[in-house]
Amino acid sequence: MGGLKVVFKKELSDHFTSYRFLIIFSLIWMVSLLITYMVGTSIREELTGIAKPRYVFLLLFMSSGGFFSFIQFVAFFGPLIGIILGFDLINREKNEGTLGKILAQPIYRDAVINGKFLAGVVTISIMLTSIVLVITGLGLKVVGVVPGTDELLRIAIYLIVSILYVSFWLGMAILFSIIFRSVTTSALASLAAWIFFTFFVPLGAGIVAKSFVPHGESEKTEAILRQLSIQRSVSLMSPVSLYSEASSTIIDPTKKTTRAYVLMGPFEKLSIERFSGPLPISQSLLIVFPYIISIIAITTILFAVSYTVFLRQEIRSL
């Protein structure tokens, strides 16, 4: 067995036997089941009387049911899964003196970090896949509609994007666990990054955009449009916004662009969406493709940075 395989195997079994994993897993399950049940029941009530509803199944993931939708839930809490799985992966082993011992065995140093990252990604995949499967199954029962291939495909793509997204946060947490010797510091740094990207960037985007609009023009449609477009570009610097845009476009076939609807109340928006035909999946994919590439790119860059820092670190500071 190569070093990578041995490390991977150990890390994976560590994840699955840890209380930490069990707790977040059951937490996510509870919330997901709750959302599905609430959304499912409200969908069923609305559906009575409609002859041939389309894309009902996807509503399970995107409609909020008065609370928040599953998509929103993953966008918001997904990072925490990645952070919880990764924030102490390297520094804990430094502090306990196990890292030096492992590195004195005949394995390459990258086997350690690759094995840890891979085991984290597999854990995330298993976690998210099982939840999506359960939502699908439960939805089938509650709503009573069988999903079409198009819908299933969309769910599958959504799942892949979600795994990538949570892996990004795992990568960030691992990076902090390499940089900081203290487990508390790396946990705090990860949380700070989460708060920064989830709350600060979108808020800051609004402020930046506003400053670009000249005084006195803020009432004009043109100015508002420009302000919104700046706000959107800035907020896309956050993986949270990238993911939210990508996932909602994939799950919602009626969403034509990733551009925010301008000057439209929620009811207007809804009625317009009702009248316009849904996009075929290939079109939806085309729209979100750049977003997916961006998520893959930032995750790869982040991992490459962790990898380089880890490989260059002096053993005495390990």
């Binding site: 306990e96 003196g97 196990t98 890292l99 011992k101 004195a104």
Partner: peptide, 10 residues
């Protein structure tokens, strides 16, 4: 190699 402060997975 036996390190000076050897660590184990507890």
């Amino acid at each position: 190699y036996m390190p000076e402060n050897v660590g184990f997975y507890n």
